[in-house]
Design a protein around this nucleic acid. Structure first.
Length: 242
DNA sequence: CCAGACGTTGTT
DNA sequence: GTCTGG
DNA sequence: CCAGACGTTGTT
DNA sequence: GTCTGG
């Protein structure tokens, strides 16, 4: 799954790189985004969508945690992940998966590998340094009294491929650059585009352990994604400190 | 019919 | 243990 | 996802 | 909104 990720590129750098896949991409209205090495649920995150066929692809900031349009209390139910295997069967995702698909760009994401009773965070990114595009859906909640509509999103997940399995058994669904435009096309049906979501080639990604300091979402600095130095393993030394 | 839930993750 | 906040 | 709080009264 | 359970 995906419960934490990083977008440390500036919004302009990000847009520039993604325009290779989506040449018409407009940065507005996401220009105010503040890059982060440690993005946690409930944060405002960069998304790319196309509201209507006549519109270009646009970046927007949506709150991470999908609040369905019918929710009475927008704080009660807000899944950050949606299982791609069952997304078509759940009424609460019907409209989002059919008409409100989006991309969530990231420089990389975090995943925790269980190591006995401990959990070791890993950072996973594309080997070529380009941003990866995670598959998302969004919805609009208009229950606020006269306030602006609340726009929220969630990231699709799937079973890990063989490359990812040693770290974790679930992973975010990633969209190949060639499939990005079709994923966002509001005129295509969900049944049409879901088969486009194939796991990335094994050599496309790289992963390495990072310091557990990033466990706390309050830590947001380059150290969050710095490769963990190999633990010294001197005979006689206490190995299990932390 | 109305009322109430509607999600994921992981762990046992 | 369970919920909220980041 | 993980971390951190989880309560009341009254006073400034 | 839409489905399930009573």
């Amino acid at each position: 799954m995906c419960g934490r990720f990083a977008v440390y590129s500036t919004i302009e750098e990000l847009a520039e790189l993604i325009r290779e896949a989506l040449p018409d991409l407009e940065v507005e209205p996401a220009r105010g985004f503040v890059p982060s090495y440690n993005i946690a649920p409930s944060a405002a995150i960069v998304t790319i969508g196309r509201r209507r066929p006549e519109h270009p692809h646009r970046m927007a900031l949506l709150k991470w945690g999908l609040v369905p349009s019918f929710a009475k209390d927008p704080t009660r139910m807000a899944p950050i992940n949606v299982r791609s295997e069952t997304v078509l069967t759940k009424p609460m995702f019907r409209r989002p998966i059919e008409r409100q698909r989006c991309l969530v760009p990231a420089n990389g994401f975090f995943e925790w590998k269980r190591a006995g009773s401990r959990k070791q965070p890993y950072f996973i990114r594309r080997a070529d340094g380009r941003p990866l595009l995670m598959a998302g859906i969004y919805d609009v909640w208009r229950g606020g009294e006269g306030g602006a509509p609340l726009m929220t999103c969630a990231i699709l997940t799937t079973d890990s491929n063989d490359w990812m399995k040693p770290i974790h058994h679930r992973m975010p669904v990633m969209v190949a650059p060639e499939a990005a435009a079709r994923w966002c096309d509001p005129q295509r049906s969900a049944a049409d585009v879901l088969p486009l979501l194939t796991p990335p080639p094994a050599d496309a990604l790289e992963a390495y352990p990072v310091d557990a300091r990033m466990n706390s979402p309050r830590h947001d600095d380059p150290a969050c994604i710095a490769p963990l130095p190999p633990a010294p393993d001197v005979p006689g030394d206490k190995v299990d400190s932390e």
